[in-house]
Simulated assay, not measured.
Amino acid sequence: MMSDATPSEADDDLLQYSAAPPVVHYAEQALLGALLLVPERLKTIGPLEPEHFANTAHSALFTAIRTVSPPPPEVHRTSPVWPNQLLDAAQAQARALTASYLHTLISVCPTDTHAHAYAQMVRSGHARRVLRRHAGSLAQAARTAGPDPARTVLARADQLAVYLDELATAFPSHPGSMPRTPAAPTAAVQTSAEASDEERMLLAAATAYPEHLPRMRWLHESDLSTPRYTALFACLTGLARRGAPVDPITVLWEAQQRGLLHHGFGPAEVLDVVSHPAGAPEHWGQKILQRALLRQAEDVATRIETLTADEATTVHQLATGSRRALATLSSVRARWHQALGDPSPGVGGASPATVQTPMPRQPAVQASPAVRHSARPVR
Rank of each mutant, 00 (worst) to 15 (best):
H283A: 04
L289S: 00
A309Y: 03
Q296C: 13
V300A: 10
E305G: 09
D299N: 15
K287F: 03
L293S: 05
D310Y: 07
A280Q: 08
R303W: 02
T302K: 03
A280S: 15
A292V: 05
R295T: 09
R295M: 13
V300Q: 04
A309N: 10
A309W: 10
A280K: 03
L293M: 14
I304D: 02
D310A: 08
Q296D: 15
D310P: 08
A309D: 13
R291N: 14
I288V: 15
I288L: 10
Q286P: 08
R291Q: 15
T302G: 02
E298Y: 06
V300N: 03
T302D: 09
V300T: 11
T308K: 09
D310H: 09
L294E: 02
G279H: 00
A297H: 08
V300G: 03
Q296M: 15
T306V: 11
I288M: 09
R295H: 13
P281A: 07
Q286I: 13
D310C: 06
L307I: 07
A309M: 11
E311Q: 12
K287D: 01
I288C: 06
A297F: 08
V300C: 14
G279N: 01
A292Y: 00
E311I: 12
D299C: 14
T308R: 07
E298R: 08
A297L: 11
D310W: 06
P281G: 09
T302H: 05
H283Y: 14
L294Y: 07
L294Q: 07
E305Q: 12
R295E: 10
L294D: 03
P281H: 05
V300K: 02
T306D: 07
L289N: 00
A292I: 02
G279A: 03
R303K: 13
G285E: 01
E282S: 15
A280F: 08
T302C: 05
A280E: 12
E305V: 05
L293I: 11
E305K: 08
R291T: 15
I304A: 01
A309Q: 12
L293N: 04
Q286V: 14
K287T: 04
K287I: 04
T302N: 03
H283W: 08
D299L: 14
E282Y: 09
T306M: 07
G285V: 01
P281V: 07
E282A: 15
Q286L: 15
I304F: 04
W284T: 02
A280G: 15
G285R: 00
G279C: 01
H283T: 05
R295C: 07
D299S: 15
G285L: 05
G279R: 01
D310V: 10
I288E: 00
T308A: 15
